[in-house]
């Protein structure tokens, strides 16, 4: 499968040859080193254990020394209750602060590690939430913009419809007026034709009479 013209091989070569910065930016590295410095300021576990052992040995020596001193200086043999009390006091004064300090340091380190891990998760979650909110706001804005555009278009359509209706009414009234004028003109024309016909008929009658008179005069002249 490792052909010379293999598209995957070419892609891997191209990918590997892309120029990239060899080192991370100094501020990124410094921030990381600072975090590590803060996280490792408390003494390491091994050192803690060692210190704890030394403290325990010192406490044991102190207890033994206290016990020996008490035993030697006491006028009488101390009872078991007194010995127990002395041991408790010695333990309380020598070990308790060291144990308390170790516990605090250990808890602090564990909390730091937990906080670092949860910080990353929280940041991712917040980024995702931010993107989701942004998309939602964009969708809402788009929806409201669409609604406004729709309303304006409806108003425009309504105004166009009203203008069309007015135009139709005006055209209709103009047609009615035109028809009335046409009817009136037709009536006038008919009357004029009747008058002309009557005048023409009288004129024909008169012409007939004149022709008859003329013919009669012409006949009389020929007879004479």
């Amino acid at each position: 499968m490792e052909r010379k013209d293999d598209i995957l091989q070419r892609a891997i070569e191209q990918y590997s040859n892309e120029p990239i910065p060899p080192q991370p930016p100094q501020d990124v590295l410094d921030a990381l080193l600072t975090k590590f410095g803060e996280a490792t300021v408390p003494a390491p576990q091994a050192h803690n254990t060692h210190t704890f052992r030394r403290l325990a040995a010192a406490a044991a020596v102190l207890i033994f020394a206290g016990f020996a001193a008490g035993r030697l200086s006491a006028p009488r043999q101390p009872g078991s209750a007194e010995i127990q009390k002395a041991i408790e006091q010695s333990l309380a004064t020598s070990i308790e602060p060291a144990v308390r300090q170790n516990v605090i340091a250990d808890l602090s380190r564990q909390w730091q590690a937990t906080l670092d891990a949860s910080y990353v998760a929280l940041r991712e979650e917040l980024t995702e939430q931010y993107r989701t909110d942004l998309l939602q706001v964009a969708a809402q804005t788009l929806a409201s913009s669409n609604a406004t555009t729709h309303r304006l278009l409806e108003e425009l359509v309504a105004s166009i419809y009203i203008a069309q209706v007015q135009n139709r009414q005006w055209v209709a009234s103009a047609l009615v007026e035109l028809d009335a004028t046409r009817r009136q003109d037709s009536a006038h024309f008919a009357n004029a034709l009747v008058t002309l016909a009557a005048a023409t008929e009288g004129e024909i009658e008169r012409t007939k009479k004149d022709m008859a008179g003329l013919l009669a005069g012409t006949r009389d002249a020929n007879t004479d």
Partner: peptide, 23 residues
């Protein structure tokens, strides 16, 4: 338990980790 020096590790491996992420 072996204890790591993370500041030294960060300086040592910063380059290769950065290149992996950036690529």
């Amino acid at each position: 338990m072996h204890v790591h020096n993370w500041q030294r590790i960060a300086e040592e491996h910063a380059s290769v980790v950065w290149q992996t992420a950036y690529r």
